[in-house]
Simulated assay, not measured.
Amino acid sequence: MRLSNADAEGMYQETRVQNEVAILTLASAALRHIKPNIVPRVFGWGGASQGRLGWILQDLMPGVPLDNVFSPTASLEQKTAVLRQMAAILKALQDYPLPKSIQGWGGLTFDSNGAIVSAPMPSVGAGPWSSLENSYRGRLKAALDKADKNPYLKGWRPNDIRDRVDDFIERGLSAQFSDLTSSHDRAIIHADFTSDNLLHDPATGLVTALLDYDFSTILHPAYEFFRSFSPNGGRFTGWIADSDPEGQELLELRRAKLTGKFPSPLPTPRETPNGPGVDWELAQAWENELQRINVKRPSTIQGIDKLADVDELLGSLTPWRLINTDFLRMNTDEGQRMALRRMGEEQLVAVLDHLGF
């Protein structure tokens, strides 16, 4: 029995459970050919309402976390075996034909006849939208509304940064979609498709569950690469400053993903202040598995680089460490908060400079 947390930061409670159940329904159909069954079956559910928690009664899935498979001591062969299964899952989610009742971009719910239809995106509380561009326009405005209410961000109005953001939304946003020839494509997006949300059977090596559909949505296939695959070097980022060795390495990885061609020989991983650098062998193995079965990926999505830049701007508008109330509650040092504010502004200004605004 899963109970929706009414205090979860930034979650739209009105359709949160409905969205998850609808996505579970679609994912179950898309992945029915994969054995063992990896999508939890739903036996009952109830949406949240005034004074009542939402809930889902679903399968308790077998298997153990994938931590040991992606540990530094595991062999590349072991990791590749799991990556091969992850690629097959992603391919099936991308290829599944959505019901005609789903007309928009964003979240899902059920109509009075039980059909799955478009709804607000639970992680935003806005939508659905009539196009991918409108989904980003709506989410940028929602992020600015959140920044308006934040005492540290103050809507990014100091130093005239807000004017620059508004100008980009008004004059620059549409141009970022001009090269995206597949802008009408939509797919089931898990949006947290990482090893943390996969279980496997150590005896057989088979993935036994894909879990946690809290952030799942219907968006362009590129969006999965903006939100998922981070532990195996598979996440695709927007513009990256290359002013330090860490940034230079990430930029090199971005180029490799964008072209589908990795350096030969592979670079030596760099140790960074934030921990180990890029695991180039693992990142290349993931790319190879995607190529092997022709999964839609950064190197095949024309215009994904400009779309990723918009997504980078979106993330920069609401720095998590200044927005999340739990983090702020645990970190009360005002000096540190102001330092985070300065870092956030530097990042946002750098993205705006890159976009030409």
Rank of each mutant, 00 (worst) to 15 (best):
A209K: 00
H354Y: 14
E287S: 13
R297F: 00
E170F: 08
P231K: 06
I102E: 01
W45K: 08
W105F: 15
S216N: 07
G233A: 08
A241P: 05
L210D: 04
S174L: 04
V165W: 04
Q78P: 06
P40M: 01
Q78Y: 06
N37Q: 15
A29P: 03
G138Y: 05
G10E: 01
M121C: 14
K296M: 11
D214C: 05
E312Y: 07
R162I: 07
L66W: 06
V124K: 04
F193E: 00
M86G: 00
T237E: 12
G275F: 08
D311E: 15
I169E: 09
R235C: 12
L282E: 09
L250R: 15
Y96Q: 02
L250I: 10
L108Q: 00
T25L: 06
I102M: 03
N113S: 15
W239H: 15
G107T: 04
R2P: 05
Q336C: 08
P267L: 07
G260C: 12
T80H: 05
V295A: 09
D166F: 08
D167C: 13
S101A: 13
A74H: 02
R235K: 14
S178M: 06
W55S: 03
F110K: 03
P273N: 10
K306T: 15
L307H: 06
Q50H: 11
N159H: 12
L57S: 09
N288L: 13
D192E: 13
R139I: 11
R270E: 09
N274V: 05
Y96G: 03
R297E: 06
M11Y: 07
R52W: 11
G106Q: 00
S216P: 07
A222Y: 00
L348P: 05
N331P: 06
N288K: 13
S75H: 06
S195C: 11
L108E: 02
P267C: 04
Y136H: 04
D305V: 10
L313N: 02
A29I: 01
W55V: 10
A22N: 01
L93I: 14
W129C: 04
R297K: 14
S228I: 01
G127A: 10
T25R: 04
H184L: 14
S49F: 07
I189R: 01
S264F: 11
V278K: 02
M1G: 13
R2Q: 14
E312H: 13
R329C: 04
A27F: 02
W320H: 11
D305E: 15
L328E: 07
D163P: 03
D7P: 03
A222T: 08
